[in-house]
Amino acid sequence: MTTKDQTVITVAATVNAPIDIIWKAWNDPSHITKWSAASDDWHTTKAENDLRTGGKFNSRMEAKDGSFGFDFGGVYDEVIPYELMRYTLGDGRKVKITFEKNADGVKITESFEAEGQNPIEMQRNGWQAIMDSFKRYVESARQL
């Protein structure tokens, strides 16, 4: 993903699970609310996902103490099941996610255009923490 005059940040994790389980956990709102948080003091209270090119998604992320919250959403530009999704966030930034099977499971790579309000390292750490939360959720789940 190349963008003009835009910093692109990439995070990744290899998840030891079959691609169909990973795809379902990544995209099903009933699962998204269980893993989509960067730290234990945050949670996703609601998720909606119309997983198709042109479809919209939205997750409500909130601090558990109620002090702050925001909607994370956008529109899918491209969806290739079990392989790729590209979307545009509500603020116009682009995101690309790939799912690549390998000997250890599935490597998920997420590249996103940085926003201008928070330091790059903070953004990278936050998105990586959510990716790591997803990995823990899928690998520890007994049934998905």
Rank of each mutant, 00 (worst) to 15 (best):
S39W: 00
S39H: 09
D40R: 05
D40G: 07
D41L: 00
H43T: 13
T44E: 09
T45G: 09
A47L: 07
A47K: 10
E48T: 15
D50T: 08
L51M: 07
L51N: 01
T53K: 15
G54D: 11
G54I: 10
G55I: 06
G55L: 06
F57M: 03
F57E: 10
F57K: 05
N58T: 09
N58M: 14
R60V: 11
E62L: 01
A63K: 11
A63P: 03
K64P: 09
K64T: 04
D65I: 07
G66S: 02
S67M: 03
F68E: 02
F68C: 05
F68L: 03
G69Y: 10
F70K: 00
D71F: 05
F72R: 03
F72Y: 10
F72N: 12
G73V: 03
V75S: 11
Y76Q: 00
Y76A: 04
E78S: 01
E78W: 00
I80C: 01
I80K: 13
I80Q: 09
I80H: 08
I80G: 01
P81M: 14
E83K: 15
L84C: 10
M85I: 13
M85T: 14
T88A: 01
D91F: 10
G92P: 05
R93N: 14
R93K: 11
K94P: 00
V95K: 07
V95W: 04
V95D: 06
V95R: 02
K96I: 13
K96W: 14
I97V: 15
I97D: 06
T98P: 11
F99R: 11
E100M: 08
E100V: 15
E100K: 06
E100P: 02
A103E: 15
D104E: 15
G105R: 11
V106L: 10
K107F: 03
K107L: 08
K107R: 14
K107N: 12
T109H: 04
T109E: 12
E110R: 05
S111M: 04
F112V: 04
F112Q: 14
E113Y: 09
E113V: 07
E113P: 04
A114W: 11
E115F: 10
E115L: 10
G116T: 02
G116K: 15
Q117T: 11
N118Q: 13
N118G: 00
P119W: 02
E121Q: 15
E121C: 08
Q123K: 11
R124K: 14
R124S: 05
N125R: 14
G126M: 08
G126S: 12
G126Q: 04
M131A: 14
M131V: 15
D132L: 12
S133F: 01
S133Q: 02
F134H: 01
K135I: 07
R136C: 08
Y137K: 04
